[in-house]
Design a protein around this nucleic acid. Structure first.
Lengths: 153, 153
DNA sequence: GGATAATAGTTGATTTCGTAACTAACAAGC
DNA sequence: GCTTGTTAGTTACGAAATCAACTATTATCC
């Protein structure tokens, strides 16, 4: 029997295709970490990201968060609403430019952030521990490069 | 455990947090590749994945695709419908077990697949070309490991 | 000053996702 | 044969993402 007209002999290995691999890895890793903030605090991924950015950087505007986290402003707007409802963050209008609001965590939000940050660090260490130290350094560097510093288009 | 004993000034680097980094890289890379199959063929990511699996492996059932691609069956069901509407795939009920259907690309589907596969390979080569060859080997190996071979939980 | 454009953020309409419930077909036990 | 349980795939419905339109405010330019 020879190869038929539907020959699938194209040697394309889907499992090695970088976009596919990256997505699989990201989804799988996120899924596990997600359980912490979702089950425990009822947060969505966008909300977690906003919370973390405020936790790390202190006070930011919605636009600044969007730039750093690469989130669309509608996503942020809705995430901020949720976080405000839960009293995790507060908004303060800027006096000079009243279009923009300064967002910051409340004490309650900071507590949640610290809890999650702690878990995040443990989780990161656990993942990193799967590989030789030097490989992890390489991995992070490559991912940062792929994660849109814009130098590859 | 909600206390201030964790100091406020945390040296937590969000840009180095692996789940975050992985997601950023995956989203950014996917976004660019997505334009090809989305703009050109109006396909969603799940549809592209199903198409690719059929292109690579030939004839599969929906369940088999789900296992390989790690997609939920509802996603596959909808993707298959779309692809069928566009005449990219055909379904044939199994004679022995009439619950399952054998899915395969039509000639039209195969043409699209080959086109996209070609672009995919070029894109993958382009991404890989950003780094030393050996680093890419390491990257793929690590991603495969992170992408749920299940050995890290 | 006044028209126009640009920016920050919100809201709405449409699409897509995710979970669970559902139908249909087969399997196993008795 | 008749229950009970499993598996393949679809459908339904609420949650969430997406894209465009919208309000409000500030900046630009004549």
């Amino acid at each position: 029997m020879t190869t038929d007209e539907f020959d699938k002999n194209d040697s394309f290995d889907l499992q090695d295709f970088l976009p596919f691999l990256l997505n699989q890895a990201a989804e799988d890793v996120s899924l596990h970490f997600q359980r912490v903030y979702k089950d425990r605090y009822g947060m969505l991924r966008t909300e977690w990201r906003v919370l973390f950015h405020l936790g790390v950087f202190g006070t930011l505007t919605a636009t600044e968060i969007g730039q750093r986290a690469r989130l669309h402003k509608t996503k942020i707007s809705r995430a901020v609403q949720k976080l405000e409802q839960r009293r995790y963050l507060s908004r303060v209008k800027d006096d000079k430019d009243r279009r923009l609001e300064w967002l910051a965590l409340t004490p309650a939000g900071r507590t949640v952030y610290k809890e999650l940050q702690n878990i995040a660090q443990q989780y990161d260490a656990k993942l990193a521990g799967l590989f030789p130290r030097q490989d992890v350094v390489v991995l992070r560097r490559m991912l940062r490069r792929l994660a849109g510093d814009g130098t590859h288009w």
